[in-house]
Simulated scan of single mutants.
Amino acid sequence: MSKPYAEVIGDPIAHSKSPDIHGFWLKQAGIDADYRHCHVRPEELADYIAKRRTDPDWRGCNVTMPHKQAVMALVDRIDPVAARIGAVNTVVVENGGLAGYNTDAAGFLEPLQVELAKTHYFRMARIIGTGGAARAIITALTDEGVVLVVAGRDPDKARALLDELDPDGEHHVAPLSHFAEATDFAFDDREGCFDLIINATSLGMAGQAPLNFDFSHVPPGSICYDIVTAPLETPFLAEAKARGFRTVDGLSMLIGQAAAAFERFFGLPAPRDADGELRRILTS
Score class of each variant (00 low, 15 high):
residue 2 S to G: 04
residue 2 S to L: 08
residue 8 V to P: 01
residue 11 D to T: 09
residue 12 P to M: 10
residue 12 P to Q: 09
residue 12 P to W: 13
residue 13 I to N: 13
residue 14 A to R: 08
residue 16 S to N: 08
residue 19 P to G: 06
residue 20 D to Q: 07
residue 20 D to W: 06
residue 26 L to C: 13
residue 27 K to W: 12
residue 29 A to G: 13
residue 32 D to H: 08
residue 34 D to L: 07
residue 36 R to V: 11
residue 36 R to Q: 13
residue 36 R to E: 10
residue 36 R to F: 14
residue 38 C to R: 15
residue 39 H to A: 15
residue 43 E to W: 12
residue 46 A to Q: 00
residue 46 A to R: 01
residue 55 D to M: 06
residue 57 D to N: 11
residue 59 R to W: 01
residue 62 N to L: 04
residue 65 M to A: 15
residue 69 Q to T: 12
residue 71 V to H: 02
residue 73 A to V: 09
residue 75 V to S: 00
residue 77 R to T: 10
residue 79 D to Q: 00
residue 80 P to I: 12
residue 83 A to S: 06
residue 88 V to N: 02
residue 90 T to F: 06
residue 90 T to P: 00
residue 91 V to R: 04
residue 93 V to P: 03
residue 96 G to M: 00
residue 101 Y to M: 09
residue 101 Y to A: 02
residue 102 N to M: 12
residue 103 T to S: 09
residue 106 A to V: 10
residue 107 G to W: 02
residue 110 E to N: 06
residue 111 P to A: 09
residue 112 L to P: 06
residue 113 Q to T: 15
residue 113 Q to P: 01
residue 113 Q to D: 10
residue 117 A to P: 05
residue 118 K to Y: 10
residue 120 H to Q: 09
residue 123 R to I: 14
residue 125 A to Y: 00
residue 126 R to P: 04
residue 126 R to I: 15
residue 129 G to S: 12
residue 131 G to E: 05
residue 134 A to E: 12
residue 134 A to W: 11
residue 138 I to K: 04
residue 139 T to Y: 04
residue 149 V to M: 04
residue 150 V to F: 06
residue 152 G to V: 09
residue 153 R to Q: 15
residue 154 D to L: 10
residue 156 D to S: 03
residue 156 D to P: 03
residue 158 A to Q: 05
residue 163 D to M: 02
residue 163 D to W: 05
residue 167 P to G: 14
residue 173 V to S: 04
residue 173 V to C: 10
residue 176 L to W: 15
residue 178 H to D: 11
residue 183 T to A: 08
residue 183 T to R: 00
residue 184 D to E: 14
residue 185 F to R: 04
residue 189 D to W: 13
residue 190 R to T: 15
residue 195 D to H: 15
residue 198 I to H: 02
residue 200 A to P: 06
residue 200 A to V: 14
residue 204 G to S: 10
residue 205 M to R: 07
residue 206 A to D: 08
residue 208 Q to L: 02
residue 209 A to P: 07
residue 214 D to Q: 04
residue 216 S to M: 01
residue 217 H to P: 00
residue 220 P to F: 15
residue 222 S to H: 00
residue 224 C to S: 09
residue 224 C to V: 08
residue 226 D to Y: 06
residue 227 I to A: 08
residue 228 V to N: 03
residue 228 V to C: 06
residue 230 A to M: 05
residue 233 E to M: 11
residue 233 E to I: 13
residue 234 T to E: 06
residue 236 F to D: 03
residue 242 A to R: 11
residue 243 R to N: 13
residue 248 V to H: 02
residue 249 D to H: 11
residue 249 D to E: 12
residue 251 L to P: 00
residue 252 S to P: 03
residue 257 Q to W: 10
residue 260 A to K: 01
residue 264 R to T: 05
residue 266 F to E: 03
residue 267 G to F: 09
residue 270 A to R: 05
residue 273 D to R: 12
residue 273 D to V: 12
residue 275 D to M: 07
residue 280 R to Y: 05
residue 282 L to R: 08
residue 284 S to D: 13
